[in-house]
Amino acid sequence: MKLAVLIKHVPETDNLKIDEKKGTVVRKGVESIINPLDLYAIEEALRIKEKHPPASITLVSMGPPDAEKSLREAIAMGCDSAILITGREFSGSDTYATSLVLSRVLKKTGNYDIILCGERATDGDTSQVGPAVASFLDLPVLTYVSRVELSDNEVEVDRIVEEGIETYSASLPVLLTISKAIGVPRLPTLKGKKRAKSASIKYVHFDKSLFSPGETGLEGSPTMVVKLFRPVVKRKSVILKPRNEKEIDESIERLIDFISERVEL
C-alpha cells in the first residue's frame, strides 16, 4: 500500500496578534508549523499503515526551504519519506497552480493508492487544494472525512456535512481530505525524532520535464490579488463593567434586552 500525505508549512495562527494601530497582523516572532489540520491526515495515514502492512507513507509539500522542519516533524510521527518542492518559480502560486504542481510531482513519484490531505490550511482557509489535486490526477475525491475503513482495494468513509454524517465507498486509488473528527493525532516518538534528524528529504526544483515555463507561481495562477484592505469594523461596542451584585443584574437585563430586540425569544 502506497500512501501520500500532502502537508503545508503555515504561520502559527494561535499566537497571532493584531497591531491595533496599524490594523495588520504582527508576524514578528511568529513561527511556522505544520498546518494543524494536516496532522489529522498524517494520523489517519499512520493508522492505515499500521492496519494494512506493508505500507509506506510519502509526505509531499510545496513551500520555502524551511518547510523541511515540518516534514521532519511528520517523519518523527512515523511517516517514511518526504518530498519538498521548492524554488522561486513556485512562489506566489494560487490554489490552482499549487494543485497542478503537487499533482505533477505525485504522478511522477509513484502510483499512490491513497492520497490524504488536511481538510484545509489554517492560513489560506480555502479547502481547494485537495479536490483540485484529485481532479488533475483524475482520481475520485471524498472530503471532510471523519472515519476510514479499508478493505480489498476499496475504502468506506464517513463524511461530516452540514446536517449529518454521510457514508460513501470508493475504489482505490482515491484522494481523501481528513477532518479533525477522526481523532487525536499522535505525538512524535523519541525514536521517530532520531530517525527524522537523519532522514534525507528529497528536493524537487523547477524542472522542464515536469513543468512548462509559466505554469507555476504567480504566472501560472489564474487568480490575482488586486487589493488588500482592512475591513471596516461597523460594530458599536457597548461594554459593561458591573462592579456589584446590582450592576450585574442590570447588565444581565440589558443583555436579555439586546437579544430579544434582535431575535424573538
Binding site: 494560487d94 490554489t95 490552482y96 494543485s99 497542478l100 489560506g124 482557509d125 480555502t126 479547502s127 481547494q128 487544494v129 485537495g130 479536490p131 483540485a132 484529485a134 481532479s135 488533475f136 475525491v141 472530503t143 471532510y144 463524511r159 461530516i160 456535512v161 452540514e162 495562477s221 489564474p222 487568480t223
Partner: peptide, 23 residues
C-alpha cells in the same frame, strides 16, 4: 461555500483551467 460547494468547485475549476476564489 458548503461542504458540497467547496468540493465540487475546485474539482471542476482544475478541468476548466480557470481560477476559483473561496468563501
Amino acid at each position: 461555500a458548503t461542504t458540497t460547494g467547496r468540493t465540487i468547485m475546485p474539482y471542476l475549476a482544475s478541468k476548466l483551467r480557470t481560477g476559483l476564489t473561496a468563501d
